[in-house]
């Protein structure tokens, strides 16, 4: 046994590793943050039509993104919502128009639902249904029938009722809170 040598060996390896990692982290962190920021901005742009610039605002501890068009007019608000899906979290970006009445768009950012079934929630055919729906009242999910916009309905993806329901439930839950907070302002 040679205890000092063992400790010294591990110590030296640890110090060198730590140094290397600090260097690698310094080199990649700005890019990772930049990627995240760009991703968020792209998501906001896709749920708030005509938006040119995006500003981050904070109300009651909620983080929102306010969109403005080329003329500086508000195009509405977007927020990130997390809901529990069939297999894990579903993260989405939701857009509300500037009058806080209707949804202007929805985009699924992350999901680990079943490929080919649940993960079709990120298809435009499903997400487009949310544009123009009333944000003041509940959105209902319908199965095996045509959804009617006037009744605030969304048609579930066949074979993926749970994933579809999760998106609708998450939206109902978060939108209410956000709209209330914005109205108080």
């Amino acid at each position: 046994m040679n205890a000092p040598r063992i400790v010294a060996t591990l110590g030296v390896i640890g110090i060198i590793s730590g140094g290397l990692l600090a260097w690698a982290n310094g080199a990649s962190e700005p890019r990772i943050i930049e990627n995240r920021r760009r991703e968020t901005k792209e998501a906001v742009l896709s749920v708030l039509p005509k938006t040119k610039t995006v500003k981050r605002i904070k109300i009651d501890g909620l983080i929102l993104h306010q969109g403005k068009d080329a003329a500086g007019q508000s195009t509405g608000y977007a927020f990130r919502a997390v809901t529990t899906g069939f297999q894990g979290d579903i993260v989405m970006m939701v857009g509300i128009d500037r009058d806080l009445e209707k949804f202007s768009g929805l985009k699924i950012l992350e999901n680990i639902e079943t490929p080919g079934l649940g993960n079709r929630i990120d298809e435009v055919k499903f997400t487009d249904q949310f544009s123009g729906l009333n944000g003041q009242t509940q959105i209902d999910l319908v199965k095996n029938e045509r959804a009617q916009k006037s009744k605030n309905e969304v048609e579930a993806i066949s074979g993926a009722t749970i994933s579809s329901r999760s998106v609708v439930a998450g939206l109902n839950k978060h939108a209410k809170k956000i709209i209330q907070a914005l109205k108080k302002r």
Binding site: L10, I13, N25, R31
Partner: peptide
């Protein structure tokens, strides 16, 4: 006595660097 511990630290260092590189680029 500490060869495996040393290998794991060395491997983990490179893995973390690869992970950071992928996340950044």
């Amino acid at each position: 006595q500490v060869r495996l511990a040393s290998y794991v630290v060395i491997i983990a260092t490179f893995v973390t660097m690869a992970d950071m590189f992928l996340a950044g680029n």
